[in-house]
Nucleic acid binder design. Structure first.
Lengths: 145, 145
DNA sequence: GTCGGATAGTTGGCCGAACAACGAACTGCG
DNA sequence: CGCAGTTCGTTGTTCGGCCAACTATCCGAC
């Protein structure tokens, strides 16, 4: 029973995901960030300081994953965490001035990633692919509940 | 610059991949395996004993990732590794008898994963999605070289 | 007011994943 | 024959990702 015969669609998702993530990693390397960290920073750049929990929810991360990732970003000086005065349990996260220097590189990396992902697809094909992915996402989300 | 605006297609790939992998992890948990290990075992079950390098290539894994994963599987008694007599650098990997007990569960998990991924898609829609993923894979592969 | 439950983050453990650096073994060329 | 270069696998380090267990804080009911 080979993988591709048991689950052709799952296998295809697997393969595309691997390739895409690997490409993202290579492109992002020039910025010095690891894949995923740019999501955190982009969320902070666009939405401003926010509670750690909200940030985790925004990019759909586990709380432990977010905590550790922020600890690393903080250590790199890209992020600042301050306890909220209102509720001493919550932590407010914000991007530092220093992190702003990375923004052009990150946007460039994502643009290039998108360019290389879209490839030579026509607009119509691109719409098809997006629609297909949306269908998959909807199905998978439905399977969670 | 939000992620979805910079790279809508990339973002969609990202999201589907996360959901799919998480679902795979949940389904596989019942077998006691971690996502990825089932790929190794399935390859060994179908193709028999083989060189570690060939195995890594078959499921497109990094050599270090394969080495460590096999070390864990070996520790669990699911896999046996013996040095090749012909070439003392190479290691021959084989699935143990004990591992065979997991086969039904693994196949069931992958079947369920596929079922939940396909969802209520018609055959035609399913073909569309597969074609779309194939196009993406082709594009991404082309971007590697 | 106090005590129990809910909420916010952290930490430990384990895994897959990538890169770099390394040692061991083989191969082929001069 | 000997040595350079290649191939095979391992180890170190650093990540993201998940679960489980824990601490600290807050809130609400009694």
């Amino acid at each position: 029973m080979s993988v591709s015969s048991v689950g052709p669609l799952s296998h295809a998702v697997f393969r595309v995901a691997r390739l895409h993530k690997a490409l993202a990693g290579r492109l992002l390397r020039e910025t010095g960030l690891h894949p995923g960290q740019e999501l955190v920073l982009m969320a902070l750049w666009t939405d401003g300081p926010q509670r750690q929990g909200d940030l985790a929810e925004a990019i759909e991360w586990d709380a432990p994953t977010m905590a550790r990732s922020l600890a690393r970003l903080e250590r790199s000086g890209l992020v600042r965490r301050t306890p909220s005065p209102d509720d001493r349990r919550v932590v407010i996260v914000e991007a530092t001035e220093m992190s702003r220097a990375l923004e052009p590189g990150v946007v460039a990396a994502w643009s290039e990633l998108e360019r290389r992902t879209v490839g030579s697809l026509t607009d119509a094909q691109q719409a098809d692919v997006l629609a297909a992915l949306a269908r998959l996402e909807e199905t998978l989300l439905g399977s969670e509940r």
